[in-house]
Design a protein around this nucleic acid. Sequence first.
DNA 1: GTCAAATTGACATGTATATTGTCATCATGA
DNA 2: TCATGATGACAATATACATGTCAATTTGAC
Lengths: 153, 153
Amino acid sequence: MYIVIMKADDLHHLIWMSRPLMQAAEACVEAGLDGTGLTVRMRAVLEILHRHGAQTVPDIAGRLEINRQYVQVMCNEVLASGFVEQRENPRHKRSPLLALTDRGRDLFQETLSRDLMLLDEIGAALPAEDVSKALGVVLAVTSLLKKTAGERQ
Amino acid sequence: MYIVIMKADDLHHLIWMSRPLMQAAEACVEAGLDGTGLTVRMRAVLEILHRHGAQTVPDIAGRLEINRQYVQVMCNEVLASGFVEQRENPRHKRSPLLALTDRGRDLFQETLSRDLMLLDEIGAALPAEDVSKALGVVLAVTSLLKKTAGERQ
DNA sequence: GTCAAATTGACATGTATATTGTCATCATGA
DNA sequence: TCATGATGACAATATACATGTCAATTTGAC
């Protein structure tokens, strides 16, 4: 009985820590972007292009799970910044591929490596096994919550 | 080396799961609030009052870590809803205490118990120890990220 | 090859969730 | 009593989306 109560309590706390965690992470990324001319949402586009290579705007929207029109705005911003350029798309003449420019790639790799260093620092304080278990729990909880939200409707 | 890479990767994933987790949790709460006349942010106020007893608006803002002016708006909503009422504050004549009305208490307890049932259900699929460790990791990561964001500025 | 249907980019509008700033009023405590 | 601070109200701004529409063009089925 006691254990059950404790668990629900921890679970409750875990779930409601998601917002502070997200805010802290975003603040951290934002602070790391200071001076680069990038915003967090521009960085998101660069990350997709870095990880998955050249993509069209609708492709990026799909990966970000954000609607096409808003991602279009984000992409226009990175295009204007010069960190991304349009390339001809052999598969669709009116929908160019967006690709990182050399400047964009350099910049993103720089911020990425700084972020990875930070992750290593943070990770140093935590047992690898705990991190991996935490990820498992969070993934499971998220998927169960999603399912429940659907059912509750 | 391999382990370090794995850990940073898991950590990265864990951190960026915070948004989907939060969204899933909010969607779930919202679905559970359907028909009660409450919104998620109104519920947040009720939860504070339920857990900590009667509070002033600035007190609630402090606990929610949201700025005073916005919490004022949230509180005005719950006051209008009739689930919360103003009481005289012996410590400050211009700043009344907000307290749950009987209706508010009943309603909140009902939604709370439904949510606790859900938590138990979700918890049933997870070892208590893992949940507790996950919470520990998330708390640690959040606090380290907050610290870093501050330093990076 | 033709033509209907789908895709794309652009733009306008709406909404939720905040933050920031200002101001008058009033309470508190030195 | 009087400076200081707390409170509530209001306005402006920002961010992060969703939705809807439209023209141009592309694709694919026939």
